[in-house]
Design a protein around this nucleic acid. Structure first.
Lengths: 190, 190
DNA sequence: GCGTCCATGTAAATGGTTACATGATTAT
DNA sequence: ATAATCATGTAACCATTTACATGGACGC
């Protein structure tokens, strides 16, 4: 894997100094969360490796009332490592959806369950959409790359929401009734 | 994980008897490939577990010229297990994209690299779209659940392709020039 | 009082991917 | 000849996720 926890930390530090805790927040809450998540269990060990490699430096920051913070800064070596990683061939995207897997087998499930799954899928996609919009609104001056990626994410969530609202009746009623009607025009949907 | 290799095999066998080799093909080549991939390394052990649990049965099929095939069939117990798994709370979707991660940091990359990444992303999405269309054309009588999921996949790929073609110039020129102009209006961007 | 946020870390468990091992047939 | 397809499996490897451990401050 070319983009592993180490690269992920380096990326966060390219945007500015940060502690492990803050790096996690970036990937867990920020606009990056849709692309790549990272928990403490992967970040803290990665930072130690980077420190040993001298790709980053640390500064202990004492805080009043809070535990000490360790703020990491990327070094020139780290910057070079990061750029190198960005030049490697990216691995294919990985996507895994339990809920879509379940919906695939809707025909074997009770009608209630089908409806519940669709509803849940619609709801979560709407939430993601709102969350992304909120993130984008917070940083209107974000660099072009990040805005582009956020735009892609937005387009995806919006497309899913639209599709569901237009087609959710497909799975209503039992199998016999479900005749997939018009669907998407142009490029041979069906 | 509620939908693991075992459940995945059970799902494939719900659609009909199959060998490990054939199950892999379903998840590697078929319309399911976008949702959940599975290699031999996870399928064969899963089938053995299922056999021990008596969720499936095997029939050895001797073939002329070919290695013997082991065709698995799901039992009533297996069907019950599968349905039970489909009633559990689905884990949140997992998505990881190295290429989008790279594009997020486009501002730190040479212009050539930016363009190459965008182009590659567009190309792969077009490929996925075509592949899905081909899959859907092959089985026009697919059950409603599967058609719905394929439709979602199609909508996603189509949305990404549209977004890229409309916004790819953002990342042209160097950072100074890249003023993200009109950007995203209100809601339904697309 | 209780939950959440801040803050850093470790260790075990999970579980999928990759590589290896074997081997015949068919298509190029 | 050589690559690809058919066919089954094992074992090491890898990385992430989850649970655990610790602890003060702040809001409700």
């Amino acid at each position: 894997m070319l983009v592993d926890s180490v690269t992920v930390c380096l990326g966060a530090l390219m945007l500015g100094d940060a502690s492990g805790y803050e790096i996690r927040k970036i990937y867990e809450d920020g606009p990056f969360s849709a692309i790549h998540k990272a928990g403490y269990g992967s970040i803290y060990p990665a930072l130690q490796r980077l420190l040993a490699e001298q790709a980053v430096t640390v500064t202990g920051v004492a805080q009043q009332g809070r535990p000490d913070k360790k703020v990491y800064s990327i070094t020139d070596l780290g910057r070079r490592q990061f750029t190198e990683a960005m030049m490697a061939e990216p691995a294919p995207d990985k996507f895994r959806s339990e809920i879509l897997f379940m919906i695939s087998f809707a025909d074997f499930l009770p009608v209630d369950r089908r409806r519940a799954l669709i509803e849940q899928y619609l709801k979560t996609n709407l939430m993601h959409l709102e969350h992304l919009d909120a993130c984008m609104a917070e940083t209107p001056e974000a660099p072009a790359g990040r805005q582009f990626v956020c735009g892609v994410g937005r387009a995806i969530y919006a497309a899913v929401v639209t599709y569901i609202t237009e087609h959710q009746t497909w799975l209503d009623g039992d199998t016999a009734d479900s005749a997939p009607q018009p669907a998407l025009p142009t490029a041979g949907d069906r």
